[in-house]
Simulated assay, not measured.
Amino acid sequence: MQQPICPRPLNLWLYLGIPLATMLALVALEWTSVDMDVANLFFDTATGQFIGRHSYLLENILHDRVKQGVILLGVLALAVFVASFLVRGLYGWRRELGCLVLALGVSTAFVTPLKKLTQVQCPWSLTQFGGSETYSKLLEPRPATDKPGLCWPGGHATTGFCLFALFFALRDRKPRLARVAFAVALIAGTVLSVGRMMQGAHFLSHNVWTAVFCWLIGLGAYYLVLYRRRAQNRPATEPRPA
């Protein structure tokens, strides 16, 4: 019988403290003009459009194709998880696969309800960038409009940052591979976030909020499904020290 995997201790100052500190920083950001300042860097006043608004690379490749690839990953993860109940060689990975499926599922499902709840406008819809909507920050009341915004948190950033789920699924069994997965998730999420900002689809803070949410979801799935205290993984009887 396969011995249970003994998890490495969780450093909550690192795994939970940094995301919570980031959330506080994002709230403080509401009293600054950073979001608008960064958006202005990607806006071409000569053409009256964001520099990536009609980019084939940003829209068709980094948006559509990458999203399809992550959807395929989620479907494959679910299929292998189901197979782990039937294929003996996958039995030992069932919990890791379950953690992966749970984290991916929640990470990609939370965005739409929050968008509908918050109704934050996209940069490209605002009067400052040639649109017709009035700008309001996350914690401010929404101006009256016939077209509520659907831009907070950043949806496409989830396509990259949801891959934090791979880090947590691999954390105890394959720590080196887990670190690679973390780097891939961070880089992918950042690249996709910048791409959408270049198109005028999101402000900087929208995407950082998404990264924090995806990390906390992955951490929560790991803690619920995989993490066990070391005492629970010790044999029922241990030899006394000589």
Rank of each mutant, 00 (worst) to 15 (best):
C122K: 08
A236R: 15
F161R: 06
Q199T: 10
L186K: 13
P123D: 11
G130M: 09
R173Y: 01
G218E: 07
N207G: 10
V180Q: 07
V225Y: 09
L138E: 01
F213R: 12
M198E: 14
T145I: 10
R142L: 12
T145Y: 04
T190H: 05
P141Q: 11
C214V: 06
P123L: 04
F164K: 02
L192V: 11
A181M: 08
R234H: 11
L224M: 14
L163W: 03
F182M: 13
E133I: 04
R142V: 14
C151M: 00
N207T: 12
Y223V: 15
G189F: 05
R176V: 15
C162A: 12
A144V: 13
D172W: 04
L177V: 15
K174G: 00
R171D: 10
Y223D: 00
T158M: 12
L226R: 07
N233W: 01
P148I: 06
L163K: 02
H206F: 05
P175G: 10
T159R: 01
R230F: 12
V208A: 03
S132L: 13
L163Q: 05
F203G: 01
L170K: 15
W152H: 04
L219P: 03
L138S: 05
L204M: 12
A181S: 14
I187T: 13
T145V: 11
R229P: 03
A188R: 05
R171N: 10
S193D: 01
R179N: 15
N207L: 11
T145R: 10
Q199P: 04
W209L: 09
V184A: 08
A165F: 08
L170E: 05
P123K: 10
S132Y: 07
E140V: 04
A165G: 06
H156E: 06
S193C: 14
G149I: 00
F182N: 05
V191S: 09
R196N: 06
R179I: 09
E140L: 09
G131L: 04
S132G: 06
A169H: 04
G160V: 04
G155Q: 02
T190F: 14
L138N: 03
K137P: 01
C162M: 14
F167A: 06
V194D: 09
T134P: 00
L138Q: 02
L186C: 12
S136H: 14
L170W: 13
A188N: 04
P143E: 15
S205K: 02
V184G: 06
I217W: 02
F203A: 01
A201T: 01
